[in-house]
């Protein structure tokens, strides 16, 4: 199903939030490509900038955020479009939101307004992007609710969100997101708040729907288990940047970046007997305000090279087939850095 043509090109995306204490660099030079029909996973601890990236794609990051770089969308019709250059409240971005790119969120409990029925809120999206006709929009909504396997779709439309369970609400959310046939679905931790069994159902549903609709998915999560089940390609994010990108297989079997390695070690595995305690990554995720120069992971890295890692920021470089890493442990990375002239001087 993948046609290997880019749908979304994010290049050097920076989202900076000016706060009283300094500038918080939520996203700091992120580059990423999502192909048509691809499911890309974006993994990282909370606070690493995943959600901010998602919000920025739709241009719904907080108003005071300063966004730079480019996010180029290749829409179904018309020329490529740089979303960063658009007026965040303008008409163009509004036809893309919900139309070309839809998003589902973590909190099914609060994602719908309690004051309106599910139907009201789902139909609102359909009428914005597909048909202004109320009756037709309602039929589409009923159809979508049936497709996400909500029983009694028509009655459910007239219910208020608080009358539905979390799993049902998240299904309704997915129905709303997919109702306008987006080419890209941004899913920001859509199953985190759900029970494990419900989680499995929703994940399966999303996979089925992707096959059915053929859209791309940007799947954001901190849960590596979900990643293994859902996606083909993974990008690992740390402090607002990609530190490693690889196919799911390569990443799980041969993680290159020390951060990825540590992340994988901290996941419990079934069946694997071990007397050791589960590892945890030492230290906390630093808050990206006034970050020192050098690799962001340096303070927590067990294999850091003093004198290098704390002074120079490594570039993201392909080291093996389709695997890109941002770490000086790999000669390819050092070579690129030397070429760019960022270390020749510094390292002696």
């Amino acid at each position: 199903m993948s046609q290997k043509s880019p749908l979304l090109n994010i290049d050097n995306l920076k989202v900076h939030l000016p706060l009283e204490e300094g500038v918080l660099k939520a996203v700091d030079g992120l580059s990423l490509t999502i192909e048509h029909g691809q499911t890309l996973g974006l993994v990282g601890e909370s606070g690493c900038g995943k959600s901010m990236t998602a919000l920025s794609i739709l241009r719904i990051a907080p108003r005071f955020a300063q966004t730079s770089g480019s996010i180029v969308l290749h829409p179904r019709s018309g020329p490529p479009l740089d979303l960063v250059g658009l007026d965040a409240e303008g008409k163009t971005i509004r036809t893309i939101r919900g139309g070309e790119i839809a998003m589902i969120f973590q909190e099914p409990m609060t994602s719908f307004s309690p004051l309106y029925t599910i139907g009201n809120q789902v139909i609102e999206a359909i009428r914005l992007h597909r048909t202004p006709d109320k009756q037709a929009a309602r039929e589409i909504a009923v159809d979508m609710l049936e497709r996400v396997r909500i029983p009694g779709a028509s009655q459910t439309l007239d219910k208020y969100p608080q009358e539905l369970s979390g799993g049902m609400r998240q299904r309704a959310m997915i129905a709303m997101a997919l109702s306008c046939h987006p080419s890209l679905l941004v899913a920001d931790e859509p199953t985190t708040a759900l029970d494990v069994t419900v989680q499995a159902q929703v994940l399966r549903l999303m996979r089925d729907l992707q096959a059915e609709f053929g859209m791309s998915i940007l799947y954001i999560t901190h849960d590596l288990g979900v990643i293994a089940r859902m996606v083909s390609e993974v990008a690992v994010m740390y402090l607002g940047r990609i530190v490693e990108q690889a196919s799911v297989d390569s990443l799980f079997h041969a993680p290159h970046h020390p951060y990825t390695q540590a992340l994988l070690k901290s996941v419990p595995r079934m069946g694997k007997k071990s007397k050791r305690r589960l590892d945890s990554i030492q230290g906390n995720v630093p808050v990206p305000i006034n970050t020192p120069k050098g690799c962001g992971f340096f303070p927590r890295c067990p294999v850091a090279i003093p004198g290098l890692c704390d002074r120079v920021d490594p570039p993201l470089v392909p080291v093996e087939d389709g695997q890109r890493v941002r770490c000086f442990l790999y000669p390819e990375v050092v070579a690129v850095a030397e070429q760019q002239g960022s270390i020749a001087h510094d390292v002696q």
Partner: peptide, 12 residues
């Protein structure tokens, strides 16, 4: 969760 900017500074 990343949306609430003033949440972080104290930690910072």
């Amino acid at each position: 969760m990343d949306i609430n900017p003033p949440a972080e500074p104290k930690v910072a």
